[in-house]
Write a protein that binds this DNA or RNA. Structure first.
Length: 468
RNA sequence: UCCCCAGUAGCUCAGUCGGUAGAGCAGGUGACUGUUAAUCACCUUGUCCGUGGUUCGAGUCCGCGCUGGGGAGCCA
């Protein structure tokens, strides 16, 4: 038995072969068959191992042991090939591997659901366990991985502490979102206390759920480490069924002490630019693929963001502009209402023609923790809007004054006694601080041109769907 | 949750006025070829989403249900 079949060290990734393989060298590649083109005198196999978008062309002549069986290989088979790298005489690829020996590691027969043709995203979603083996999803998940690492690098380079905030929480008032319940109680017959479920008998001695945001805990760490960020899973039990919502997603939430709303916006702008630049510079092959097959002009759009100066506009001003706009809006605009996606897109696309911050929203439409401005009617909130999607980042300066924070909690129906630990951060050494949140999947959508959030997360969880 | 659209071969889809189905791709066989989602010829494949109804007769019309998609709300 050939030892190279078992040795990981003997294997070269296709990305490396195509980028740096020496012509004439003998090497071993392992991967999955994308297509087999059989001839009488020569057979071509397109082999892909996920290390890059491109497949490696493997050329086999009938002298190769087991040639007949190899010709019958189905799409999706896993194989190992030993051969020598050569200049390719035909168009389509610079290099190819002249196979000397091929071992079928795992057979893929004709029932393999992925064919060497285009499939709809809807169909691929139904076989999410296999779709990563396609060009589009290969590219999506390589970019997603690269972006995640770039996000950590961005914050590491700026001295931000990476904090793991809890996933199980007893705060039922973090955000507006509905929470998933976490319990070990017997659902068939839970202990009752005066007719209601008695959560004091539950695992944690109180009602708990999955986090809808790490922000509150993040703020506490910012009051110790100055600059921090979270990047982790987040859960919303909303019955939302749209191309932009999933029940489980990943969120990035930086928080800075001794920072105001302007510093917050500056960070958001720098962060967003950095990530656009990152995919353009580091995911070229995959980004070119998206640009060619998914969204013509994607690269131009992102280059535009990198070069653009980000606009800034007061909410008051935005409302004035929208009220004067001739565009036919589905929803009318009045001071005090939240901006709809159509309004946001009008502002960023038609009025400014680039990324735009909207600042200082009416306090009635924003969360309790946002800092009350001196005018008494607005809070120090900021939304970052971008063409094509509207809001992509939302943030604020937090209310650092204990009395005002408590008053806002009461006004919005939150019992301050449930968040004593949060209020403590304002009790001793409170500093002005600010932060924002960015949904990771929405970022991936924006940067790849993918239009359904279920296609940028490996195994999406949506109402009625927790497969795989 | 609300509004719209769709469900036909393994996949993508066509199916006229109501008369029990067809193409391309995939698969099989053969030919041919330094091929590029190869090409050419021939062949195979159906619970027409389910259910009830109208009708002599339903893929087609109607009701209900299920599933998927798009839009809205909520939001990241």
């Amino acid at each position: 038995m050939e030892i190279w079949k078992h040795m990981k060290s003997g294997r070269m990734k296709i990305k490396e072969v195509l980028a740096a393989g020496k012509v004439g060298s003998e090497l071993v590649v392992k991967g999955w068959v994308r297509s087999v083109r059989v001839g009488k005198n020569v057979t071509f196999i397109a082999l892909n191992d996920g290390s890059c978008l491109a497949s490696l062309q493997v050329v086999l002549d009938p002298a190769v042991p087991g040639y007949r069986e190899i010709c019958g290989l189905g799409t999706g088979s896993a194989v190992a090939v030993r051969g020598s790298l050569a200049e390719s005489p035909a168009a389509g690829q610079k290099r190819e591997l002249r196979g000397v020996e091929l071992i079928v590691v795992g057979v893929g027969d004709e029932s393999y659901p992925l064919q060497k043709k285009r499939h709809s995203f809807e169909y691929l979603r139904s076989i999410a366990h296999l779709r990563a083996r396609t060009n589009t999803f290969g590219a999506v998940f390589r970019v997603r991985s690269s972006l995640a690492q770039a996000i950590h690098r961005f914050f590491a380079e700026r001295g931000f502490l990476y904090v793991h905030t809890p996933i199980i929480t007893a705060n039922d008032c973090e955000g507006g979102g509905e929470m998933f319940r976490v319990t070990t109680l017997d659902m068939a017959g839970p202990p009752l206390a005066s007719g209601k479920v008695d959560y004091s008998a539950d695992f944690f001695g109180k009602a708990t759920g999955l986090t809808v945001s790490g922000q509150l805990e993040g703020e506490l760490f910012a009051q110790a480490f100055s600059d921090i960020y979270t990047f982790g899973p987040t859960f919303r039990a909303e019955n939302s069924n749209t191309a932009r919502h999933v029940a489980e997603f990943w969120m990035i939430e930086p928080e800075m002490a001794f920072a105001d709303l302007m510093a917050d916006a500056a960070l958001a702008e720098e962060f967003f630019r950095y990530l656009c630049r990152h995919v353009l510079d580091n995911c070229c092959e995959d980004m070119d693929f998206f640009n060619d097959h998914l969204e013509k002009g994607l690269l131009e759009r992102l280059e535009g963001v990198v070069d653009a100066s980000f606009g800034m506009m007061e909410y008051d001003n935005a409302v004035d502009i929208l009220k004067k706009a001739k565009a036919p809006f589905r929803y009318p605009v009045e001071w005090g209402c939240d901006l709809q996606t159509e309004h946001e897109r009008y502002l960023t696309e038609q009025v400014v023609g680039g990324p735009l911050f909207i600042l200082n929203y009416p306090k009635e439409i924003k969360a309790f923790y946002m800092r009350l401005n001196d005018d008494g009617r607005t809070v120090a909130a900021m939304d970052m809007l971008v063409p094509k999607v509207g809001e992509i980042i939302g943030g604020s300066q937090r209310e650092e004054r204990l009395d005002l924070l408590e008053r806002r909690m009461v006004e919005t129906g939150i019992d301050p006694s449930n968040l004593g630990w949060y209020l403590d951060s304002r009790r001793w050494g409170s500093s002005p601080h600010a932060g924002f949140g960015l949904g990771f999947e929405r970022l991936v959508m924006y940067l790849t041109g993918m239009e359904n959030i279920r296609d940028v997360i490996p195994f999406p969880r949506t109402p009625g769907h927790a497969d795989f």
